[in-house]
């Protein structure tokens, strides 16, 4: 199906950032990526510059402050480019979108790609400050993880959009660093997003205050219930639960 349909990044405003850092925050476990990305847009007052055009997306537009926006969007602040979404990325769109993002990042001569997400922690209720883990596509992304003291995930399984981005990043020679915070599996987790953003702040050398995020945590949890429910359905279909299984490798 993916070969039949196209996925394209459309730039509505010129993106002339030199050696940009591309950040991806999409709906996934605990909506950590989406919550982090939305907070970055608000806190850093990032500018809307483009969107993802695809037959694989539903025919919809979002209205915000009387302006219309497509569901999967691109934002910019200086040399930081951010891709985020208001809807789950369907299983048919994961591969072509990952391919398109990496090709686009390469054409932009991007320094690296950072993906923001969560990793289900069964004991999340007992954790006050979620820890962040990293998965990286190559040595230079690994050095980046080391710089911000991210604990590398030594063994495990990655399923979904970020797995595809790591794969294509390595093939195309664009370093990809995935940050995963311990998170609730099926509930929106602003606390995990705050942990991720503290690490992003160090990595991109831009202060991102999470004060407002922590203050609005309950409101965010309430307002993101529907997106969480839909994302959960998608994640179950792509076999996300495998991330909790012990991988057979090296046994």
């Amino acid at each position: 199906m993916s070969e039949k349909y196209s996925v394209k990044i459309i730039e509505e405003k010129p993106i002339d950032s030199k050696e940009p850092i591309v950040i991806i925050g999409l709906p996934d476990v605990g909506l950590v990526g989406t919550i982090s990305a939305f907070h970055m847009v608000q806190e850093l007052k990032m500018e809307y510059v483009g969107f993802i055009e695809s037959d694989l997306l539903p025919p919809m537009m979002f209205v915000h402050k009387t302006e219309i926006y497509p569901p999967v969007r691109v934002y910019k602040l200086n040399n930081i480019l951010l891709v985020t979404s208001e809807i789950p990325i369907s299983e048919y769109m994961i591969r072509p979108l990952a391919k398109e993002i990496v090709a686009w990042a390469k054409a932009k001569n991007a320094k690296f790609i950072i993906t923001l997400g969560g990793i289900a922690a069964p004991n999340r209720m007992e954790i006050d400050m979620p820890e962040c883990f990293s998965v990286f596509s190559d040595k230079s992304a690994g050095q980046l993880a080391q710089k911000s003291k991210l604990t590398p995930l030594e063994e495990g399984v990655m399923v979904g959009m970020y797995a595809e981005l790591l794969k294509h990043g390595r093939r195309q020679g664009i370093p990809v660093l995935t940050i995963l915070a311990q998170s609730f599996d099926r509930y929106p987790d602003p606390g995990a997003a705050a942990s991720v953003l503290n690490k992003v702040s160090e990595l991109i050398d831009v202060r991102i205050s999470v004060e407002e995020l922590v203050k609005r945590a309950e409101e965010i949890r309430i307002k993101m219930r529907e997106l969480m429910q839909k994302t959960d359905q998608t994640l179950r279909r792509i076999g996300k639960a495998q991330e909790l299984e012990v991988p057979p490798m090296y046994t």
């Binding site: 539903p58 369907s90 048919y92 509930y187 219930r225 429910q229 839909k230 359905q233 998608t234 279909r237």
Partner: peptide
């Protein structure tokens, strides 16, 4: 439904205007 399964299927909103209540997420 294959292209955008979660948006084409009829999931009902997690709120009820007549009862003025929200439906929580559960596991």
């Amino acid at each position: 439904s294959a292209r955008y399964p979660d948006w084409s299927c009829s999931t009902k909103p997690l709120w009820d205007s007549s009862r003025k209540c929200l439906e929580p997420l559960y596991d």
